[in-house]
Structures are given as structure tokens and as C-alpha cells.
Computed example of a mutant assay.
Amino acid sequence: MTATTRDRILDALETLLLEKGVSHVTLDNVAAAAGVSKGGLLYHFRSKDALLAGLVRRLGERADRQLTNAVAGGVSLAEWILQTPNPNDDADALELNLYRSMLASMRTVDAGARPESDEVQRALTDVMRGWSEQLDCEIGDPVRADIISLVGDGIYLRALLGMPPIDPRRYREVVRSLLDR
């Protein structure tokens, strides 16, 4: 499957964010890295904020695809949120793409944190709100759903930072306790 121009642009943005940092993210640099003209980039993303928000939205799309596959395999949303990410598993391209998107999206928050625009923050809020609403429906107790979400965020953050995971037996007990099993 060939990547769309939009995906090539977002891949280039993601790579710039991960390899060089937000200070290197300019429309010219992203266009050059994607192999498109600046006008071609602006056709897909009308501004730098729209470009950064597009990356965050793609994170949501990738997570939704991974979640759909997990649910089809019998995993609940809560279990998916509490999974330990494994970005080193080359066999799981969806997980690796999601991991890269998550890292790059975390860097967009600083890039989009300008008072004159909140498009990036709005995109991130929309993605997170969607997951929260689904989890609330699945769990039925909004406080417990928030606890599961916060623990899942912590698990993912540990992996993103390269911190060692907690003991697997202890982790299974945490998940069992949270899922009331």
C-alpha cells in the first residue's frame, strides 16, 4: 500500500519531532522532508497548528484501529488501556506506529501551546474525550473508569520514558483489581 501525501507529510512531521525536536518543525522543513512543495503541504494543512493537530488526530485514528483489532480478539477497552506497550515488537506494526505517534504527539503539545491558537489542544482533547466516553460506558462507574484511564496513562508513560516495567505478577494483580476480577 502506498502512503497518501497526507500520510507522507505527517510521517515527515513525526520524524522531525522525534529526531530533531519541535524547534526544527517549520512548514518548509516538513514539506522538504515529505518531498512536497510548501503549497502541497498547505493544501492538506492550512497552517502549522493544523499540521500539528493532524498528527494528534492521526494518533487517535491509529489507536482506534488498534483498539478495534483488540476488541475483535476479545479484549475489552479497559484491558486495552491497561496493556503494557511493547514498542520493540517489530511484528506488531500497529503498536510501533502508535508508539511513535504518541511520542511525537506529546511533543506537539509544547509546539501548539501558543495563546493565539488552541487547535492542537482541541485535537488532543477530542481524542482523549472519545476514549473516556467509551470507557465510561463500558465500566459504568465514571470514577473507576477515570482510575483505569489514569493508571493506563501511567503505564504508557513509563514505557515512553524507557522506565522498567513493574513486576509482571504485581502488574497482573493491579489489572485484576482494577477490572474487579
Rank of each mutant, 00 (worst) to 15 (best):
L16A: 02
T2L: 05
T108P: 02
A159R: 14
A145K: 03
M1S: 06
L41R: 06
E19Y: 04
Y171V: 04
R62V: 06
R65N: 11
A70W: 05
L17N: 03
D180Y: 08
R65L: 15
A123D: 05
S105Y: 05
G112R: 12
G39P: 05
F45P: 01
L157M: 12
M163P: 08
A12Q: 12
K38Q: 11
A53W: 08
I147D: 04
R58A: 02
V30R: 00
G73Q: 14
L42N: 10
D126N: 13
G162K: 12
D92F: 02
M1R: 09
D153C: 11
A50T: 11
A113C: 08
E138K: 10
A53P: 13
G154H: 09
I155W: 05
M106L: 14
S47W: 07
D136K: 13
A104I: 07
A123I: 06
E138Q: 11
A113H: 13
A111C: 04
L10R: 01
R114T: 14
L55M: 11
A113N: 14
P87E: 00
G60F: 08
P87I: 00
D28A: 13
L178D: 05
M106R: 10
P142R: 10
Q83A: 15
S117M: 08
G162V: 07
T125Y: 06
D126C: 05
L179N: 02
V151K: 04
A113K: 08
